[in-house]
Simulated assay, not measured.
Amino acid sequence: MRPKTFFVLLIIAAAYILGARAGRERYDQIVDSLTAFWNSPDVKEARKNAKKQAAKARKKYS
């Protein structure tokens, strides 16, 4: 399994387990925190830069 896929599945499993143990309210709190993080301007900019660098690398090594 690719490392990125494994990492994403690990995060999903951890969020599910923490949510199931702490109840729906805590789960919603975790989801809201992750959503706020994912949509923050700094993270959006980092994702945009990563996409640009990946495109450059594809062109360079294609």
Rank of each mutant, 00 (worst) to 15 (best):
A46W: 03
Q29C: 01
Y27K: 05
F37K: 06
V8Q: 11
K44Q: 14
G19E: 10
A13S: 05
R21P: 00
V31R: 15
V8G: 01
R26A: 15
Y16Q: 05
G19Q: 06
L34K: 03
R24N: 04
I30N: 04
G23W: 07
N39T: 14
A13K: 13
A36G: 05
K44L: 14
T35F: 08
D42G: 05
E25L: 12
R24S: 04
I30G: 01
Q29K: 12
I30Y: 11
T5G: 00
F37Q: 02
A15M: 14
D42A: 11
L18V: 04
N39E: 05
L10D: 00
A15Q: 04
S33P: 00
A15P: 00
N39G: 01
W38E: 07
P3F: 00
S33H: 07
A15L: 15
P3M: 01
V43R: 07
A13N: 03
A13V: 12
E45T: 05
P3T: 01
G19I: 04
I17S: 08
G23H: 07
E45K: 06
L18F: 13
L10I: 02
L10P: 00
N39M: 05
A15F: 06
V8R: 14
L9M: 14
L34Y: 15
N39F: 08
R2M: 11
A14D: 01
I12T: 15
P3A: 03
V43C: 03
A15G: 12
V31H: 05
Y16K: 06
D28A: 08
K4I: 09
G19K: 05
Q29R: 14
A36R: 15
K4Q: 10
L18Y: 07
P41R: 10
I30T: 03
S40K: 04
F37D: 01
E25S: 13
E45V: 02
L34R: 05
N39Q: 10
P3H: 00
A22E: 12
R24Y: 01
Q29M: 07
D32G: 03
K44I: 07
F37P: 00
E25F: 09
A13L: 15
L9H: 13
A13Y: 09
I11R: 10
